[in-house]
Design a protein around this nucleic acid. Structure first.
Length: 572
RNA sequence: GGCCCUGUCGUCUAACGGUUAGGACACCGGCCCUUCAAGCCGGCAGCACGGGUUCGAUUCCCGUCAGGGCCGCCA
């Protein structure tokens, strides 16, 4: 294995380099004991964090380093390049914004570049609507990227689905040098294997058993040539351990025997995250991989990949995971996680960013309100706190109030005009309300539900919220399933699509469509008399409809199950 | 279950060997005010536990416990 002595061209934490501008951590170790430098380098878990006299830029590495002009990436020197690499599946996630913010800040602080890369290697789940929403959300927040799918850049394309040849070639390189191998195991075999392992509780040997690794190269080549379906797997070292430096956590080392042979190239020729991510980070000159903690466990695989390619590793920094109130990883079941939700509800991007920056970082002991430029100016990556922060919507909301109150009235007006009271939205609402009012002032009352967040149900609405000849519980169940199975996955929120989904659902669920639509109507508008349901839902928008439907489910569940009579008087 | 990460008020955090452990959200009082909100003042509340190291540990080390993450041809 080639031990590449990396260049010191990047601004990196001082602890990572010794006096000779060599990395103090090799990151990889094929068997045998760790290099002696490892032991003394990180005396404890908190070692690197409080290194005295740490500086942002290690000036010793600026010039005259042995490797400064060779190896590594050919194009840039002394530049920090970070990236956010979201997968375009579903709604734009608050966790993406969180990680993007820290990447953005670090790049900007160092005069570097922040890159957006779309990781759409999952054919099943990736889609363009989701990608577009990611663009819009990050732009809304003000986290603009220097290079990305829509703005281009010198290292494109920035969409992984457009980089197939690159991954295939790199996978082949690894196969050629024996660092990866084709695997012909069927999904059935793998499932059986997993099942067996689970049953026998061979916990330490979970994962792929290396069955095809034993194949003779010639034999494997013959089967590939014959067109037999296969994947390409990384040949992990079988012994020793892999040690990788994490900027915040010090050295992380994992026994290689505990890491199985990860799939690099799927049978459809698409790369997995592991391959694509490493290849792209290298090719795009990413210097600092700042990502969520959930990736720590695949660090050794990534390190081995860099190693197998003979590439220099970037600096790794794993951010803590945002949490639900119960401390589990933040999830949509327990928290609003869609950036669209916050945007529609009227959270200001400045407040969101400010709040997010507080998750694991503090500007000083007695201040917590600051702007993005102020954040960038004071941000020290090593000051990030590691405990998993609970994402507290209540405090976010308080902070948002601070920002709203700080706005001059004309600015507040402008915000309203840009969104909730935009001409575009008003026009769409008017089109529906138009023929249903007789005086202009009626409009405000009639169209109220198009503008407010929460709606209340009056007595009539409460009765009709329950489906005809159904119990509250049954209706709750139906609406809940409608949401989960049809509406949550529906990214293109158009009347025709809504109608199709809802009719199909009614049929599948054994509901008369009309009997289902009234509870839905009540749920999203609070009224029994409204403009046509699907058009109304389209104009209300995806966020508002889903939020209200969730609320309706809660309301229904809190009603006494009382068939035929509707809700009990005191329910909710 | 295995491996890994983490551990200061309920929540977000400050503290980088010596502090009455500070600030913020939430909560509870009070002031202000026609009301509400905001604002201001005050209160409640925390170093997970046990061993070391040290003259001295919230702080450094070890262990225990607890929480979390990962264990996919998803990222």
């Amino acid at each position: 294995m080639v031990q590449s002595h990396v260049s010191c061209r990047w601004t990196t934490p001082q602890h990572r380099w010794d006096a000779n501008c060599r990395p103090t951590l090799t990151g990889v170790n094929f068997g045998g004991p760790a290099p002696p430098t490892l032991a003394g380098r990180f005396p404890g878990a908190a070692g690197p964090r409080h290194a005295p006299g740490r500086r942002l830029v290690d000036s010793r590495c600026r010039a005259g380093c042995p490797g400064a002009s060779k190896g590594g990436h050919p194009t840039m020197a002394n530049v920090v390049r970070t990236r956010i690499a979201p997968s375009p599946t579903g709604d734009p996630h608050v966790g993406t914004a969180y990680v993007a913010l820290f990447n953005y800040a670090w790049a900007k602080k160092n005069g570097g570049q922040f890159i957006l890369r779309i990781e759409d290697t999952d054919r099943e789940r990736s889609n363009r609507t989701s990608e577009r929403m990611i663009f819009e959300s990050l732009r809304w927040l003000g986290l603009s990227w220097d290079e990305g799918p829509d703005v281009g850049g010198p290292f494109g394309p920035y969409r992984q689905s457009e980089r197939f040849a690159i991954y295939r070639d790199h996978a082949e390189q690894l196969v050629a040098r024996g660092a990866a191998y084709p695997c012909f195991c069927t999904r059935e075999r793998l499932e059986g294997l997993r099942e067996e392992q689970r049953r026998q509780k061979v916990a330490h040997a979970l994962g792929y058993d290396g069955h095809c690794r034993a194949l003779a190269p010639a034999e494997a080549a013959r089967r590939r040539a014959a067109g037999e379906p296969h994947v390409i797997r990384l040949a992990m070292p079988r012994e020793g351990e892999t040690a990788v430096a994490d900027l915040l956590r010090g050295e992380i080392r994992i026994d290689n025997r505990l890491v199985d042979d990860q799939v690099l190239l799927k049978s459809d020729g698409f790369p997995t995250y592991h391959l694509a991510n490493v290849v792209d980070d290298h090719l795009m000159g990413i210097t600092h991989v700042i990502r969520a903690e959930e990736w720590i466990s695949s660090l050794p695989k990534h390190a081995q990949l860099y190693r197998a390619f003979g590439w220099e590793e970037p600096v790794f920094c794993h951010l803590p995971l945002l949490r639900n109130a119960d401390k589990s990883k933040i999830s949509k079941r327990k928290n609003p996680v869609s950036l669209n939700f916050y945007r529609r509800a009227g959270y200001l991007p400045e407040a969101m960013l400010n709040y997010l920056a507080l998750m694991g970082w503090a500007i000083s002991a007695d201040r917590e309100e600051f702007s993005l430029p102020e954040f960038i100016a004071s941000f020290e990556i090593e000051d990030i706190t590691l405990g998993g922060p609970v994402f507290d919507v209540e405090k976010l909301t308080w902070m948002n109030g601070k920002y709203i109150r700080a706005l001059a009235v004309p600015d507040l007006l402008a915000k309203l005009r840009a969104d909730i009271l935009s001409d575009d939205h008003l026009t769409r609402v008017l089109a529906l309300a138009h023929e249903r009012v007789e005086k202009l002032e009626d409009f405000v009352e009639y169209a109220r539900f198009f503008f407010v967040g929460e709606i209340e149900y009056d007595a009539e609405a409460r009765v009709k919220l329950v489906g005809k000849k159904r119990t509250a519980a049954e209706t709750a169940e139906a609406l809940s399933r409608l949401l989960e199975e049809r509406l949550d996955p529906l990214l293109d929120w158009e009347a025709a699509r809504l109608e199709a989904e809802m009719r199909a659902f009614a049929e599948a669920a054994g509901w008369k469509s009309g009997d289902l639509f009234m509870p839905v109507r009540i749920a999203v508008t609070g009224k029994a008399a409204t403009p046509p349901l699907f058009e109304t839902m389209e104009v209300l928008g995806r966020e508002l409809c889903r939020r209200r439907l969730r609320r309706a489910v809660e309301t229904l569940r809190s009603m006494n199950a009382d068939p035929g009579r509707g809700p009990a008087p005191e329910g909710v």
